[in-house]
């Protein structure tokens, strides 16, 4: 018993150390948010405590972020990402359900197309695609920003993998009760695969949260800038506001982390609770 407790204590220490290792660069980013960029660069070498702790606290960077219109860009990013997650999760989960559960001819072909679709690097097709969007009259619209995030093969793929793990006996039982496919999908599969939904939601969210090239190609109005575009604009031809870049990057990193922390408790309810697994 004591050995097990010691072992658990040791593992906890390992977990804390590893987390700190991953956290250090983010701490540097946060520290750099609260100091002048001159100080940031002066204190990065040689090694000293001021790497991670500002000598002189300042809110200048946050102010300059707010004044440069970063809040508009941030709310654009939030809007685009949230709509993408809600709509994208709905349609990707449905597609994944069909690919994992419903028997039909052409299932493998369809799945292969899905796999092929996420092998294609989006940046490599963005330029021709942006021309199509312009032909369709979609430039400078929110729809243009949201659409490419919706058809996400990776999100479909991950949910398919988890749906395959749900025992068939459950869906057969539901069918015997007279449930149709939609009922099976909605009341059997979705509640059992919440961690997979969170994972797929992350994929959809981060695609938009990191979006940079595509927004530049399909929008040109500043009021439609997404957060990463707004950050890039801190690098002008004659001025570079690193402090602002750090502040905005830190804000951008912390929002999804808070959401994920809040979602942690859903990681326990899953297929495992049904007691069997195929």
């Amino acid at each position: 018993m004591i050995i097990r407790r010691v072992g658990r204590g040791l593992l906890t220490v390992v977990a804390i150390l590893v987390s700190l290792l991953f956290l250090l660069p983010v701490l540097w980013l946060v520290a750099s948010t609260f100091r002048s960029s001159t100080e940031t660069f002066a204190s990065s070498s040689p090694l000293n405590w001021n790497v991670l702790w500002p000598k002189e606290f300042t809110l200048v960077n946050l102010e300059s972020a707010v004044n440069s219109g970063f809040m508009t860009a941030l709310s654009n990013s939030l809007l685009v990402a949230v709509v993408t997650v809600i709509v994208g999760l709905g349609i990707s989960a449905a597609a994944a359900f069909a690919l994992a559960v419903i028997p039909f001819r052409g299932r493998t072909v369809t799945f292969s197309i899905v796999v092929l679709s996420f092998l294609v690097p989006f940046e490599a097709i963005a330029i021709p695609l942006s021309r199509s969007f312009s032909d369709w009259g979609l430039t400078n619209t929110l729809i243009a920003l949201i659409l490419p995030g919706l058809g996400n093969g990776l999100a479909v793929f991950t949910m398919r993998q988890f749906f395959l793990g749900v025992p068939h006996s459950l869906s057969e039982a539901a069918h015997l009760d007279g449930a149709n496919w939609f009922r099976v999908f909605w009341s059997v599969y979705l509640p059992l695969t919440r961690p997979a939904l969170i994972g797929a939601g992350l994929i959809l969210f981060l695609f938009q949260w990191q979006a940079y090239l595509w927004p530049i190609l399909v929008t040109s109005r500043q009021e439609l800038d997404l957060a990463p575009v707004a950050i890039a604009k801190a690098f002008g031809a004659f001025t570079t506001d690193y402090g602002r870049v750090f502040a905005e990057t830190a804000i951008l990193a912390i929002i999804p982390a808070i959401v994920l922390l809040a979602l942690q408790r859903y990681f326990v309810t899953s297929v495992a609770s049904t007691g069997s697994k195929e």
Partner: peptide, 15 residues
């Protein structure tokens, strides 16, 4: 700990 280890992937790549 999970969230802290995940945190880096939420940082914009350029950052």
């Amino acid at each position: 700990w999970r969230t802290l280890i995940f945190l880096p992937s939420a940082v914009p790549l350029a950052g």
